[in-house]
Computed example of a mutant assay.
Amino acid sequence: MARFGVVLITEDCSRAQWMDKCRRAEALGYDVIAVPDHLNLLSPFPSAMLAAEATEKAVIGTYVLNASLHRPAVLARDVATTDRLTGGRLEVGLGAGYVRAEFEAAGVPFGAADRLRALRDATGALAALGDARPPLLIGGHGDRVLRLAAERAEIVSFTGAPYRAEFGRTALVDADEMAERVAYVRSAAGVRAPRLELNVLSKGTVLTRDRRAGVAALRRYAPDLGTDRLLEVPTLFVGTAGQIAEQVLHHGERYGFSYFTVMESSMEAFGAVIERLR
């Protein structure tokens, strides 16, 4: 059975507002409630703790911790503590980070090699926790991050959104490139491949009876893709709840995805899809 997660945004949240959002996510059927890690948001570990307090069964995730912002040994302590105090409900997600301004504000190098080294060091520190380590998710798109995920994580998350210099930001790849990324991970994982859980991060969900018109609202995520290719992008969901449920099943068959994560802006819309799939 597939799992479904939502990344909730903590900006400007009071205690009550944050707890209400977490409860609503659980009520809609989300299996995983995840907190992001950006300097303009509330700190991820206290937010994760309060999410666990507000809910009953949901896994509490981080999507994703910027490895460069956390000293490896301190990160391992914080992960172990949070997992223990949430009753073993933590799923720790790690990434290499992508917002240059945050690196500059934190006084840490932004170079690709530096970011990969920080991610590698973080996974090493977590591995030292042994059996006490919660499930590890690593998210990304490029070869080096996905290879590390294939070698060290239980869950590989495909963002499908590399940085594009011509746009000055990230942009979504098409269906064929996503398939190539999945194949790359399976090859890199070797004998581990059958044990990996494959996750995909969706950028947007639009409930509509007119898919071609609906996808126009999401074109900003992939401005170089025509409508037909945009409708096939596995990181966007467009259509009726029933049609999107069919998309989810199709993505499971084509890519092997069994874990789907949406952003908070899509929480209510995708909740109607979860209801169809339960």
Results as ranks from 00 to 15, higher is better:
R3C: 01
G5F: 06
V7T: 15
L8H: 06
T10G: 03
S14A: 06
W18H: 10
W18M: 07
A25H: 05
V32Y: 08
A34C: 12
P36C: 10
H38L: 08
F45Y: 12
F45S: 02
P46T: 06
M49N: 02
A52C: 13
E56S: 13
I60N: 14
A67W: 00
A67P: 08
L75R: 00
T81E: 14
T82H: 01
L85M: 14
L85Y: 10
G87A: 07
G88V: 03
E91R: 14
G97D: 01
Y98C: 00
A101C: 02
F103N: 01
A106K: 01
G111Y: 08
G111C: 05
D114A: 14
D114K: 00
D114G: 02
R115F: 01
A122I: 09
T123R: 08
T123C: 14
G124A: 08
A125D: 11
A127R: 13
L129C: 07
L129K: 07
G140M: 09
G142P: 00
G142V: 08
D143Y: 10
V145H: 03
L146A: 09
R147G: 03
L148C: 06
A149G: 14
A150L: 09
R152W: 02
E154G: 10
P162A: 04
F167I: 09
F167Q: 13
G168Q: 12
T170C: 11
V173P: 06
V173W: 04
D174E: 12
D176T: 13
P194V: 08
L196W: 11
N199A: 11
L201T: 04
S202W: 02
K203W: 15
R209D: 15
D210W: 10
R211H: 01
R211M: 10
R219Q: 15
P223A: 01
L225V: 07
L225A: 12
R229K: 14
L231V: 12
P234T: 09
T235G: 05
F237A: 15
F237N: 13
A241E: 15
G242H: 02
E246G: 08
R254Y: 01
F257E: 12
F257M: 07
S258D: 15
V273R: 05
I274V: 15
E275V: 05
